[in-house]
């Protein structure tokens, strides 16, 4: 059986909130290492990969591999009933029909219990190769969100060009064009506000802004976001969580 307690319900709330518009139904794969999820969006342009390691739970127990097939909208309806600071315990049998969720207020004076029905989901699992990316950019997640939001007002697509001088996000649309260039800098008072660019070769790729704006819903999970790019391969957008990560892969656009 699975029994996993999170110190703060908000971690799972934020994960589900961030991905529920990309993915409707998916399996939460539970094993002794933790809980993982991998799913493509309906149009097969983006891939979501999430891991909450067992060390992020206390206690964590999972005797055998269990796939929890969940409708994310249903899960979100239940998770909205949890306060951010509530303790959240997930429980399921070895061959479960439902997932049990227990919310305990931090003052322990309220217990809420919900069961949601599970579904059989036949999901294709994709192998993601280890990639040495040509450019890795770490920047404040709020900054990335703002860039995507601002440029999406002008265009459907953004080109991301990284070279030794910095990283340039540029777009052009019917009303005109725009760009934002970030240069590496270190904020000595707050490391999370720094922009770091590691580059082995220049890259220039074009992506759909609609998806990037969607990924940015994960911004509340982490103060920083990591963008990994190589020419001709999907962009990796990664938000680190305490004991895991939420990763989005986005296929590039090609041609003009």
């Amino acid at each position: 059986m699975l029994e996993a307690r999170l110190e703060q319900a908000q971690i799972l709330k934020k994960v589900v909130e961030a991905i529920k518009d990309l993915v409707q139904d998916c399996n939460f794969d539970c094993n002794d290492a933790g809980i993982q999820l991998q799913a493509m969006d309906n149009s097969h342009v983006a891939l979501v990969s999430m891991k909450l390691g067992s060390e992020g739970f206390s206690p964590y127990r999972c005797d055998r591999n269990i796939a929890l097939g969940i409708n994310l909208n249903s899960l979100m309806k239940v998770l909205r009933a949890a306060a951010n600071e509530d303790l959240l315990t997930l429980k399921a049998e070895d061959q479960p029909d439902s997932l049990n969720l227990l919310f305990e207020s931090s003052s322990q004076d309220r217990l809420s219990e919900y069961d949601i029905k599970l579904m059989d989901i036949d999901q294709e699992h994709l192998g993601i190769p280890d990639t040495e990316y040509a450019a890795t950019i770490t920047l404040p997640s709020a900054e990335f969100q703002r860039i995507c939001r601002d440029l999406s007002a002008l265009s459907e697509s953004v080109s991301i060009e990284a070279n030794k001088d910095g990283v340039k996000f540029a777009c052009s649309g019917d009303i005109g064009n725009g760009s934002v260039t970030l240069r590496p800098h270190t904020n000595v008072e707050d490391e999370d506000k720094s922009t770091k660019i590691e580059l082995t070769e220049p890259v220039n790729l074009t992506f759909s802004l609609k998806y990037l704006v969607n990924f940015c819903k994960a911004s509340s999970l982490s103060a920083t976001v990591r963008l990994c790019l190589s020419n001709e391969v999907p962009l990796l957008v990664e938000y680190q969580m305490g004991a895991g990560y939420l990763r989005f892969y986005l296929a590039p656009k090609i041609g003009d």
Partner: peptide
Amino acid sequence: MSSQRSISSFFTPV
């Protein structure tokens, strides 16, 4: 116009 690639053309099923 640019065309959107599919993610499954980069990552193969396991």
